[in-house]
């Protein structure tokens, strides 16, 4: 039997209690992208500032939602800050890979193709670190969309035209 301890791991609850990189960034230079889960009304407002060297110089997260969507966003913000766009894309692929088995079967929204990111194995060796704690979410298929909301929003931000 799947227990709640598989879902609500301590590090997840920690990010929920004390979300990192919460706030807003000035637009421009940052980009602002919103993500919604129409099923539950959760929303992520993501600010990403990419510098001239294609490095994610700063990230900020706004919006509201459940413990899984908020902690996933918080952990994502920590993971991508200071990374290059290429590294961030690989992280998205790796994280979506962690979640993908079920996401496509539970009314998958086809976002992978929409955002031009394919699960092609190129990110197989990417280290997810703390994000691994979200692995338990796949045992609760309804919550996978909570965990992927911020990542889909990030992917959307990264396919938008590079900041001039």
């Amino acid at each position: 039997m799947v227990g709640l301890e598989d879902l609500y791991r301590e590090i997840i609850l920690d990010h929920y209690r004390s979300p990192r990189n919460r706030g807003e960034l000035a637009v421009p230079p940052a980009r602002r992208v919103e993500g919604f889960n129409p099923l539950c009304g959760d929303e992520i407002i993501l600010y990403v500032h990419v510098d001239d060297n294609n490095v994610i110089e700063d990230v900020a997260i706004g919006g509201q939602g459940c413990s899984i969507s908020q902690s996933s966003a918080s952990m994502m913000s920590v993971a991508i800050k200071g990374k290059t766009l290429e590294e961030a894309r690989k992280l998205i692929i790796a994280f979506k890979g962690l979640m993908s088995i079920h996401e496509t079967t539970i009314g998958g929204d086809g976002r992978e193709s929409d955002i031009g990111i394919e699960l092609d194995g190129s990110a197989d060796n990417v280290k997810l670190g703390d994000l691994e704690a979200l692995r338990g979410v796949v045992k609760f298929p309804i919550r996978i969309k909570c965990a992927t909301l911020s990542w889909n929003t990030l992917a959307q931000a990264l396919v938008e035209p590079t900041v001039a």
Binding site: L4, L7, C40, C66, S67, R143
Partner: peptide, 8 residues
């Protein structure tokens, strides 16, 4: 959050 309430 209501989703977490419903989950529990």
């Amino acid at each position: 959050h209501p989703h977490d309430v419903a989950q529990v």
